[in-house]
Write a protein that binds this DNA or RNA. Structure first.
Lengths: 106, 106
DNA sequence: TTCATAAATTACTATATGGTTATATAACTA
DNA sequence: TAGTTATATAACCATATAGTAATTTATGAA
């Protein structure tokens, strides 16, 4: 087992923090269907414009999404697919827990 | 692509929040070497006892760790290995980013 | 029962974070 | 240029969270 330094743990935690917010996950999940402008994300998620922009700049700082300007619009896209693998792992594990729950109490 | 409900996204976010704190990661990483008592974790991590206990109960609530009482001591152990896969994914991606950084600026 | 030790909990503080409103910036159009 | 639209940023508030000190609970030993 590799020994991780505190600094490394902080980096991992800092990155996972990006994925531990429902609205950011919703944005990412929406972007999974292809790149979207801020406007489109506002419509598709139902969140406020400033809110979306703030989340997007955070995600961009972490290189989780990329941005591309086209006239007045700025299009954002997924730049790091590994986030979905992470979500899948979490989902699978939750399913397993549900199953165990059902096995015992169902 | 599966459509995820807001509720599902909240569950995922809530679970990932458990992994987005350096101290909790440190605890989990320490437990990777085998089960440990609260005392041992206090010594190995350098954190306060109350702090460790609080993090452990959070992790236990999410079934990420399990607990076993043996006399005065309570031993905690990893109950969900998938967390390490998640950390590995994050690590790999960070390495990739570093590599890209080095390729461009190194 | 009394004492000692381990762990959990409570109460509190400081800080971080998400959301909102208002404003600023950037880019296109007339 | 002035006006319009899209996005970003700033300021602010409310809430959540990590850490700590003090206390309580649980267990074992004398």
């Amino acid at each position: 087992m590799k020994q991780l330094k505190d600094e490394a743990l902080e980096l991992i935690a800092y990155r996972l923090k990006m994925l531990s917010d429902p609205m950011r996950l919703k944005i990412l999940h929406t972007l999974q269907g292809g790149e979207k402008s801020v406007q489109q994300l506002v419509e598709l998620t139902g969140a406020g414009q400033a809110n979306i922009s703030k989340h997007l700049s955070q995600l961009a700082q972490h290189n989780i999404v990329g941005r591309r300007r086209k006239g007045l619009h700025v299009y954002y896209y997924i730049a790091d697919d590994s986030i979905f693998k992470i979500c899948d792992l979490v989902c699978k594990n939750m399913e397993k827990n549900m199953q165990r729950f059902n096995d015992v109490f169902g």
